[in-house]
């Protein structure tokens, strides 16, 4: 196996200040939101790397930087050893770009309602001046729809079928890596399994690599080979699913696992987690989790923990032990 994506010290800061004039009049400083802070990880070819986290964890921001929708503020994204931000050869950049595709969360918003399905799914090829004859039919059949569906408009399909169309579009340019941003969270339960199975099959058949972004721990456990847990823009733990779910090392991961509702524990009484996610504009000092952490000591308030290995797990906690 070789490394397909390596992300190093990735940081993204958003300027969420009020307009300049309001700021001057109200005498307010600039407000900067650090959505992603110093995140590093690698994705091996033909595996599924999952990013989990709650809202504000920066998981979608990382996905957008990976596909080029956002520029990193600091750090770099390298794909097959090519740093897209620094690479000057336009042809290489274009080649790598077409190797990365994305599946979006909302199947109702991700397809242009005025376009025919056939035009939607072949756009990645047509936009690059490629030949798309017969492509739509092939892709539609690949995702379990009929070739004639190319003539229809998105509103003629159900949510699950639309997400299949989104998958077909992502496959059009023969990508190596697909970033899946909450691909099933807008779908009904009975349809979710269809889409997840389809994605698994396609991965095996086409040798795809997924970056799978989700807040749903059960889905992540089913899909992922490696899971990265994000909290407030920081990667706090990285492990394979079995290790993560049986012996979570970071106190946040432990809290998250305990809080997630589970179907196999009927009538479970849980001690609900304490506190809420802090304001990302003024994150806590040191370890971002320390105000909610049962293990927190003085060092946690002062020093941000580095990711380190505990067994096979990478964890960013001063107190994590094997």
């Amino acid at each position: 196996m070789s490394t397909l994506v390596s992300i190093r010290n990735l940081t993204r800061v958003f300027d969420v200040s009020k307009p300049w004039l309001n700021r001057v009049l109200e005498n307010e400083p600039k407000r900067l939101l650090t959505a992603v802070s110093d995140v590093s990880f690698e994705v091996e070819e033909n595996t599924v790397y999952a990013l989990v986290g709650e809202s504000g964890s920066g998981k979608s921001t990382i996905g957008k930087m990976l596909v080029g929708l956002l520029r990193p503020s600091e750090g770099e994204v390298e794909i097959r050893g090519v740093n897209l931000a620094a690479e000057s050869d336009a042809k290489t950049v274009d080649q790598i770009r077409s190797d990365i595709q994305m599946i979006f969360q909302d199947p109702y918003a991700s397809l242009n309602p005025r376009w025919r399905v056939g035009d939607i799914i072949t756009e990645p090829v047509v936009a690059r001046g490629g030949d798309a004859t017969g492509l739509a039919a092939k892709l539609l059949e690949q995702v379990g729809l009929a070739a004639e569906d190319a003539q229809k408009f998105p509103h003629e399909f159900s949510g699950g079928q639309r997400q299949r169309i989104g998958v077909a579009r992502a496959l059009a340019s023969n990508p190596k890596l697909i970033v899946c941003d909450e691909p099933t969270s807008a779908l009904d339960v009975s349809v979710q399994a269809q889409v997840l199975n389809l994605m698994s099959d396609l991965k095996d058949d086409l040798g795809l690599t997924y970056l799978f972004i989700s807040h749903d721990l059960t889905v992540v456990r089913h899909m992922a080979d490696v899971i990265g847990v994000l909290y407030l823009g920081r990667l706090v733990e990285e492990a394979d699913p079995d290790a993560l779910f049986t012996t979570p090392k970071h106190p946040y991961t432990q809290m998250l696992l305990a809080a997630a509702p589970r179907m196999d524990q009927i009538g479970r009484e849980v001690e609900p987690p304490k506190g809420e996610i802090p304001d990302p504009i003024n994150p806590p000092t040191g370890c971002a989790f320390h105000p909610r952490c049962p293990l927190a000591t003085d060092v946690c308030k002062q020093k941000r923990p580095e990711l380190r290995y505990v067994g096979t797990t990478r964890v960013a906690c001063h107190h994590a032990e094997g």
Partner: peptide, 24 residues
């Protein structure tokens, strides 16, 4: 039965999920 079976369960591991064909 299909609904419960199609949920990814902690215990089930990586096998294919059971799925209900079609949609409502």
């Amino acid at each position: 039965d299909g609904l419960v079976g199609s949920m990814p369960m902690a215990s089930a591991g990586k096998e294919r999920l059971r799925q209900i064909p079609g949609s409502m």
